[in-house]
């Protein structure tokens, strides 16, 4: 079983506790307006629009499929700009064991791995295989997820997954729909169930003043989760929206928050009983 992988980072400090390897899987079932790497949203449709714009000759069509020659690639990202499908030709397919081989030299120095995306739960069978191998090395396994998958119902996955870092993008249903194209209900239910199971590693909200009602989201989710920290404290990562990588028309419609706006949200979370708050 192989997964479509967008990127592997050998040492990451922003994807969970300690030093971690991070694996970014291709493909997402959300299409958030503020996504800063929208090229990870869809699998390549092999339309070939990117092939002719590549200045390095690293892309070609073979048997109806776009083929990427990594060695020739100059990483100019002209292919991403040319893509009409929110995708990328620069992915690779790896089995769980192949990922482990790639991470061989990293294993002694990392606390664990984090699988992100895209939306990693879309490649759930691969996750189970990979996490088993990682656990055998006595390292921790985390998922970075949008909350659309019913994690706690998947005992097999939960048995090898140490925790989920969950995006709580918006509390309000209509707002969540507008931003992601999906309902907020499963996300909130997941937050509750994961927290009760002691598997909620972190929640995350990206702050876009004016576009999202961030105060409501922060207030409601922290009131809901604060009493459920008996197993372990839940970290809240409150991130500023940044225009880098964001597609139009959203880029023109959104603005970044000030430090004060972020601090104000952190204060709401703190008052509601969340102690571990990170502002980025």
């Amino acid at each position: 079983m192989k997964a479509v992988v967008n990127k592997i980072i050998h040492t990451s400090v922003v994807d969970g506790p300690g030093n971690r390897a991070a694996i970014f899987l291709q493909g997402c079932n959300y299409a958030c307006g503020y996504c800063h790497n929208p090229e990870t949203i869809n699998l390549c449709g092999h339309c070939g629009a990117c092939v002719s714009v590549c200045p390095a000759g690293a892309l070609s069509m073979e048997d109806g499929k776009v083929v990427w020659n990594e060695d020739a690639c100059c990483q100019c990202d002209a292919c991403l700009s040319a893509c009409r499908n929110m995708s990328t030709p620069k992915t690779k397919e790896y089995s769980a064991q192949e990922i482990m081989d790639i991470l061989k030299k990293d294993i002694p120095f990392i606390r664990g791995i984090t699988v992100s995306g895209g939306e990693c739960s879309l490649q759930r069978d691969f996750l189970v295989e990979l996490f088993r191998l990682v656990k055998a090395k006595r390292k921790t396994t985390l998922m970075d997820s949008n909350g659309s998958y019913d994690y706690t119902a998947d005992e097999e996955l939960m048995a090898v997954c140490d925790g989920v870092m969950l995006d709580v993008k918006a509390w309000n249903e209509a707002e969540h729909m507008k931003l992601t194209g999906m309902s907020s209900t499963p996300v909130i239910e997941n937050a509750l169930k994961l927290a009760k199971a002691g598997k909620l590693e972190e929640i995350r909200t990206v702050v876009v003043p004016g576009y999202l009602n961030n105060r409501e989201t922060v207030d409601r989710i922290t009131k809901l989760l604060a009493p459920l920290q008996e197993e372990k404290p839940i970290r809240y990562r409150i991130s500023a929206y940044r225009p880098f990588g964001v597609r139009e028309p959203y880029r023109s419609e959104m603005r970044s928050p000030s430090r004060e706006e972020l601090e104000e949200l952190a204060e709401i979370a703190r008052k509601n009983g969340i102690t571990d708050i990170v502002i980025i």
């Binding site: 400090v13 030093n19 120095f109 606390r111």
Partner: peptide
Amino acid sequence: KRNPEALLDMIKGG
């Protein structure tokens, strides 16, 4: 500075 634990992981591994 955001994640000194990560540096400690490297020292432990080394």
